[in-house]
Design a protein around this nucleic acid. Structure first.
Lengths: 346, 346
DNA sequence: TTGAAAGCGCTAACAT
DNA sequence: ATGTTAGCGCTTTCAA
């Protein structure tokens, strides 16, 4: 590999001058700088970041830990982070935890070895414990929070989003509204459940725990939960369903399809998180949409700006708004049709 | 940060011994090793990979360059690569090129600075030129090839996959079969087009270039191409459509929907690359499915084994088989129904 | 089996 | 404005 010394020799200067010409051009005379740049170009020189980072005791890399890259939501998050990082000349190490705290722990340790400048993480259920491994690192949590005090977070207004969704169902006349919610050791699930409860309460509808099913965020969980809810006696079962995340929504909808339950005639459905699938399935799904890309981008910007501004910035918690997208999967209970026209509403 | 010296002091040995205890345990006496491990544990020591890689002149990192992480196909590829890399204790740098050769060039340069041990790349159209930047690096191309001689590739049997798809349409009785194909400077597009032509030829159907439309892999391109094809006069327009990649298939299907053209009664459709969307849309799409995860995993395994076995391995080109999945989007021309039952066939 | 010493490629004092 | 020198944290001769 061609290194600083090679360039220095070709340009007939000392290695230090080459280093300066590349990193602090203003410290080097115009002519020498040109000569050096020319030499570097000629040799195809690329600075060794390993050496540079070792010496500066600070790298131009970030760690990104998400729970499932196959989930379009997370892929979009990753893209947002990537783009922001690239804009600031940072390179990102990507890790997947599959929601497994043990994989998260390993990822954190590996990451530690690579001396990243900061960390963006969608925390697993046990992240609070795991994050003790990297206390020295500037961290931003995105999408959800581990509850670790003093950590910056960039999230969506889950409570408000859920409230809007359930409010919509109530407005249509539903009283028995089911919810499929994620694991309660994950903050988004807790918050969306809270939004559900708030909407019910505001409408004076008592909370009925038999209508709320827990799932582990996966398609299969949504499927099982929907089956359980819909096998309740007709007068007890929900007439509408609010599903707490995208994958479980898929499972629920497919289960309903298999059971021959028509949406929205027999059951109204609202999902959390939009996707192409939700928009183009039959019937098109009414959802609470999240600014996913922006979430990732902003989280990364937040991290980077806290790096450059030093430690003095207060741990901020950013909440982005969701938007409610009305499509064709909801109708008044009992089956009168509704919503054949598409429209949006904030 | 706690370093080797700290551990050495605590364990009352020299730094060299600590290094050995960690990297070549067999070179250190049982007792000392235990003491050292204990000390390392106590201090929460994590080796600095930057220093280690610098010294060894070889890192435990890989570069992965894909063209679009938002495309589930690429996300799945990335997951396969990740999993294989993790299994062998490698960490991966992820880059997105968005099919932009300039972004690819930048990614390659940045990557070079981080001294990865090898590179996995889904090459952009100008990769052949760009890859000259990293001639020293062991490379595996996946999904498609840049045509650079001597480079290992892990791809799918695109010709065979396309042939099966078109053969199926021919068997149903179609003669005017349209194809929406990707940019012809991308190998997968060329190969899939070739499979299309081979199937036609084998059936004695002349190749009609007005039935073949080029697109740039995006949903919008599939949409435009489908609109163009279907606005041909009824006696000239295709009765069946083979679409060369997943995103364009989405566009084509949505365009057909908007035009009110019923699938498969008025037009049969076969896509390349399966997805949840394809499987659950109405009607469920008949597709050529790819072993995507395996493609990524295998590509990474191939790269890593070539690293450990040294340079002597021959540049291998691996082809994985596709599988044809018959669902509900194809029928004989003229509208007789078919394929309401789902089944698979290799 | 262990330690001393050199050096990977770079940057940052400190000198000139 | 440029050069000299030391050292980031680690591994690897070489010597004991």
């Amino acid at each position: 590999m061609v290194n600083l010394d090679d360039v220095a020799k070709l340009a007939q200067v000392s290695p230090a001058t080459v280093s300066r010409a590349l990193s602090r051009p203003e410290m080097v005379a115009e002519a020498t700088r040109k000569r050096i740049l020319q030499a570097a170009q000629e040799l195809g020189y690329q600075p060794n970041q390993l050496a540079r980072s070792l010496r500066q005791r600070s790298s131009q890399t970030l760690g990104l830990i998400i729970t499932d890259i196959l989930n379009p939501f997370h892929a979009t998050l990753a893209k947002g982070v990537q783009d922001a990082a690239e804009k600031h000349n940072y390179t990102v190490f990507l890790f997947n935890t599959d929601e497994d705290p043990e994989k998260e722990r390993r990822a954190l340790n590996v990451l530690r070895g690579h001396q990243p400048r900061g960390l963006l993480i969608v925390p697993s259920p046990q992240a609070k414990e795991n994050l003790k491994l990297v206390t020295k690192l500037p961290i931003v949590e995105l999408d959800r929070t581990s509850g670790t005090p003093g950590i910056r977070t960039v999230m969506v207004d889950n409570v408000g989003g859920a409230r809007k969704a359930v409010q919509h169902l109530i407005d249509l006349g539903h009283r028995r509204i089911g919810m499929i919610v994620g694991r309660l050791d994950i903050s988004t699930a807790v918050e969306r459940l809270q939004g559900y409860r708030e909407a019910l309460q505001a409408a004076g509808i008592p909370y009925d725990e038999t209508l709320v099913r827990l799932g582990n965020h996966r398609e299969a969980d949504g499927r099982a939960a929907a089956q359980a809810l819909l096998s309740m006696p007709p007068d007890k079962r929900p007439t509408a369903l609010f599903v707490g995340n995208n994958e479980m929504t898929v499972g629920a909808v497919l289960a309903l399809r298999e059971m021959g339950i028509r949406i929205p005639q027999e059951l109204s459905v609202v999902g959390f998180d939009d996707s192409r699938w939700a928009a183009t399935i039959e019937p098109a799904l009414t959802v609470v949409a999240q600014p996913t890309y922006e979430l990732g981008f902003l989280a990364c910007e937040t991290l980077l700006s806290s790096l450059s501004r030093g430690q003095d910035t207060l741990p901020t918690s950013i909440r982005l708004d969701t938007s409610f997208i009305l499509r064709e999967s909801t109708a008044p209970p009992g089956g009168r049709k509704n919503g054949l026209k598409k429209r949006r509403q904030s």
